[in-house]
Nucleic acid binder design. Structure first.
Lengths: 357, 357
DNA sequence: CCTCAAACCGTAAGCGCTTACAGTTTCTGG
DNA sequence: CCAGAAACTGTAAGCGCTTACGGTTTGAGG
């Protein structure tokens, strides 16, 4: 344990002086280039004694990697009045995804620059450009930027999108929505014999939502089951959205289907909550399913039958793809697709005793 | 909509040339210093036409703020074999906290540099120093750095800790653990008449855990109730830890108390899960309580009685304090304490029908 | 129309680092 | 012991920006 260094922030010059060499030598040692063993020792000793840490900023300025990738996601805004809403809930899928990205980044010594975009914000171009200036590359969650926006920024900096669409310059990572949804639908229709399925949609134009709807309708059609998808069943991937739909349906005395297929787990949480408040039991009165298999899905009341996406792995894969882009490694496929899997628990009506998945 | 700019990354020189002024003028306009209206117009026009975005790196190098604060948190490591564990669950309290920080940061145009520290990593000094070089200040979650470590880094850069301990140079933000725990304990002992309470601890030496234990023991003693806190009841703030304790207790045929007071909600989730697997019903056979009121607490099977911390607000407050430190505004109090509140739901044994909190 | 202050602008230095280039030292072989 | 190659080191330029400083323009007042 050495004495504490002075408060002024150290530069490479201080180290050079202390070690009796030039700043170039210090830089070389720090970056692992060849140099004589004794030079190396002196520099390292000086660094240790001084507690020197190179300025990431300066390093980045002179053409090095910043070892930072920016992650941009949409955020459910807090209540417009500026008060922090504690009915906040958007914290699930995106967070797990971010954890996955973090895991990948950690392995390469990268840090993550996180930035959310308000749902109200319709032209986040500026913010995103500014992030590009502070990072080596960008990971964009779903619905952050339009395709042309992505193309434009991808021309200037490496970009990977999550559950979006690949462009000429960017790579997209997603999971196999169609497969999972087909399995789920078959289970509901064939095993349970449900004849009417409502699809409680997410953002209608998100690629994930589109793929899920299509797979559902396809399989249902094959099996002669009915799919309800009207305006009224339109959600927004959030629990509040799911609850709102149910309340609307019930307030208007509209009929309920045999099963409500939710666009994601969060929506299902909202749905089950709203149903419970109205005294409608899941799965006795109606089946509910999710999509994603977020960690809490198994702890819910009526444990959720859902489709598992390898969420963390999606994140990690996104980072790895971006890393390849950044370092100029062989370019990854423009679209990376990870497998999904049906997870049957209790909420679809299957007997279920609360075993771990 | 203009045509797409060339792929080379633009500098202030390009803008200056285009506008027919010097780079100094461009810089001044960009930073809102006085200049003649027509100069201003020409610069702004050039910026717009070119789609110029100043390099955050260069700006930071020349003595400006980076508009980045780093957030460091402990992360439950993935399984040691490197495979991503999908029984991941640490994603709750810390994530909400981060959301709060994000909210505060967003309001000031700051971005967050997120970095996790492995539970195995016992000397994260290096990583943290490096983060300090990339940011204007640091927010450290609980258990990231020792007090002396904090003191050292706080001498060089602004630091705010969450649920930690204030040092001469750093500010700490926490919530009023003692108050919440006193309320909860009174409720359990006085309203329900429970005579034996087990405290399922978090990290034994974390300030939060200490405060909670003390408050519990104090109130219980006043009321003549018994508190169990032995080695066997030691958890780790994680669901898996809570479940492990229950399994251990039951495997050894040890007695159960009237109520299990968990150090946080995550632990309670694990506890309820393990109890359910053994066929022990909550609250009929035993009461369980949490602490934090994370968003899913209300969706759990047997909705959780807990103590609400204003989690997002804690985060936002931490950011604001750090911002004050960074900008040299009047120094905040060394310790900022936010209020807590008892939230009674069903898991303590109260009648409860699933209304929203 | 001229003077002088006020307002604005451009030049250039500097932020802390990397690296090309050229100079110096070391080592090999004759 | 010396020449020449090999290995290393130091000098200096440059990354893109901000800003002090001094020069230039503008405009008010006489």
């Amino acid at each position: 344990m050495t004495t504490d260094p002075p408060a002024r922030v150290l530069t490479i010059y201080d180290v050079a002086e202390r070690a009796g060499v030039s700043i170039a030598s210090v830089s070389r040692v720090l970056n692992g280039h060849r140099s004589r063993p004794d030079t190396q020792d002196r520099v390292l000793a000086a660094v240790r004694e001084l507690g020197f840490v190179p300025s990431g900023t300066a390093r980045a300025l002179s053409g090095q990697l910043k070892e930072v990738v920016a992650v941009v996601f949409r955020r459910a805004a807090d209540s417009p009045d500026g008060v922090i809403s504690d009915e906040d809930e958007s914290l699930m899928f995106a967070d797990v995804l971010n954890r996955g990205i973090e895991t990948g980044a950690r392995a390469r010594g990268f840090d993550l620059l996180m930035s959310s975009v308000d749902v109200y914000d319709h032209s986040p171009q500026g913010r995103i450009s500014s992030l590009a200036g502070k990072s080596d590359g960008l990971i964009l969650h779903d619905k952050v930027l339009s395709a042309v926006g992505i193309t434009r920024v991808a021309r200037r900096t490496p970009v990977v999108t999550l559950a979006g669409t690949a462009t000429e310059a960017s790579v997209n990572v997603r999971s196999d929505n169609a497969f999972g949804m087909r399995e789920l639908t078959r289970h509901l229709v064939r095993e349970h014999g449900y004849q009417t399925l409502a699809y409680l949609a997410g953002h209608v134009d998100s690629p994930d939502n589109v793929a899920r709807t299509e797979a559902l309708e396809l399989v249902a059609a094959e099996s002669g089951a009915e799919v309800w998808t009207g305006e009224i069943w339109r959600g927004n991937y959030l629990a509040s959205g799911g609850a709102a739909v149910i309340n609307r349906v019930l307030d208007h005395d509209l009929p309920l289907p045999n099963a409500i297929v939710c666009s994601n787990d969060q929506t299902a949480i909202g749905v089950m909550f709203a149903l419970a408040q109205r005294g409608i039991r899941v799965p006795d009165d109606i089946a509910v399913t999710g999509f994603d298999d977020i960690p809490v899905a198994r702890h819910l009341h009526s444990q959720l039958t859902t489709v598992r996406q390898p969420i963390k792995k999606l994140g990690a894969t996104a980072f790895d793809a971006l890393y390849a882009l950044i370092t100029g490694a062989p370019r990854p496929e423009p679209e990376l697709v990870l497998p999904t899997e049906l997870v049957v628990r209790g909420s679809c009506g299957c007997p279920w005793e609360g075993e771990p998945a």
